[in-house]
Design a protein around this nucleic acid. Structure first.
Lengths: 248, 248
DNA sequence: CAGATCAGTCTTGTATGCAAGAACTGCACG
DNA sequence: CGTGCAGTTCTTGCATACAAGACTGATCTG
């Protein structure tokens, strides 16, 4: 079950239900999952080694809020990994291409519906699916973590690039893969990630003055009681523009 | 302190003092480190998410013994990452080159002395140091884990390639980097890793029939008592040839 | 009213207790 | 001599207890 907790938390994070900066109270989570703090702690520890969450000594666990430097480095790492993979991998078999086309179709559908939560997940997962085509588990795990961190970044620095543009890039990449032109696919993927990163508002300053919001308790609705079952959400979901802006 | 335990264990593993398959008893480690099982468990959990160790339910923790498939995938992942990084990174500044040359010198010295333990560490660490030149922490962490896993592989499938050959490859790579020829450095690095992998004896069958050695208790010296303070070493260090054969 | 102080409450850090399962040991039996 | 079986011991899994730091809020003081 501890692995299940890790995955459940990760899913909530990458789908934006637990935004960057959210406090993750061990005891509340323990209550929510119906287990003791021990298992929660194990799951959080795992997520910490993947840099998805962060712990401040005796203060609490938080969904990681990558700073500008970390954002840079994670994007750079992703570019390197995906470029190297595509440039050096053998051409994808038709079955893999078919799976990617299915994914592209899912993206299209999600965009049409404007289902933001699904979109965030799908746009990030595209790159993981590409890795899955290789059948290389080590690579998939690598990209899963890297992609999750990327989503965190997108969530922090509201991307100016909308999902449609990313979707079009994805289509182009799959076309190149289908044509067996790995070199082109690699370069497209590299450029795509550069464009996405360039679209970030890195001057947004993630949670200015440390965790000011938490300090000011913007996490709790004004009249709400002190006992909330769900972990607190320091960043207001309401201030997100209706158009689905996100990376990947 | 839990982070210290993780690093201490990792160091012991990558330096070969805790060979693949070694059993890592929580209580013994707790005793050795002078802490409770809790902290040991946390360190082991961290190492497990990095695929350095593995846990079998209610049987115990073990230093991971990668099978042939995992070996393939980890090497492939490393090739992708390092190729992508070098092919797309900007040329290294002179200071970084200097540090790499220092490392090369350390390698040379270790080969001259035949200090096997140091050699294992250095030959693997070369690739980590290259990543360090980028100043990209995410990339460094990635390669640290990947390299550690590679060392495990080398330890399982006794490499036929000796350290000297790897050392020469490293020199060549640094020369290319010094010349600012990143494309060449990338390709050299890729080929180097392919050569190293090709030198593995993947037909050695890692610990045939599951953990036969453990079952047969080849880990304990015949007359030795049952209370050994150190974790058991299932693989005999004595059957290693005197010439330092290893990967990277 | 502004500021300091101190008790109360929350958080994680770490140790410990207990239970369940796996494996080993020795014995009895065919 | 091999084989099955039970008792014992060792292992991890998970819950819980307790300690100590950090924050909150009220009260007291100038």
């Amino acid at each position: 079950m501890p692995r299940g907790i890790e995955n459940t938390l990760l899913a909530a994070i990458v789908e934006g239900r637990l935004p960057p900066g959210s406090k993750l109270s061990e005891s509340r989570l323990a209550e929510a999952f119906g287990v003791s703090r021990t298992l929660i702690r194990e799951a959080l520890t795992r997520l910490e080694t993947r840099r998805i969450v962060r712990v401040e000594a005796r203060r609490g666990w938080f969904v990681n809020t990558p700073d500008a430097e970390e954002a840079n480095q994670v994007y750079a790492a992703r570019r390197f990994v995906e470029y190297g993979f595509l440039a050096k991998a053998r051409p994808f078999p038709p079955a893999a291409i078919a799976r990617l086309r299915t994914h592209i179709e899912e993206e299209r559908a999600a965009i049409a519906e404007g289902d933001k939560s699904t979109l965030i997940y799908l746009m990030g997962d595209f790159h993981v699916r590409i890795a899955e085509a290789s059948g290389n588990r080590a690579l998939v795990e690598l990209l899963q973590t890297l992609t999750a961190r990327t989503i965190l970044i997108s969530l922090c620095y509201q991307s100016e690039r909308n999902a449609l543009a990313s979707h079009r890039d994805h289509v182009e990449i799959v076309d190149a893969l289908a044509a067996g032109d790995m070199t082109r696919a690699a370069q497209l993927s590299f450029d795509h990630l550069e464009d996405v990163e360039a679209g970030l508002n890195t001057d947004i300053a993630p949670d200015p003055l440390g965790s000011l919001r938490t300090t000011l308790r913007l996490d709790r609705a004004p009249g709400e009681g002190t006992k909330t079952k769900r972990p607190e959400n320091p960043s207001e979901p309401s201030d997100q523009s209706e158009k689905t802006h996100l990376g990947n």
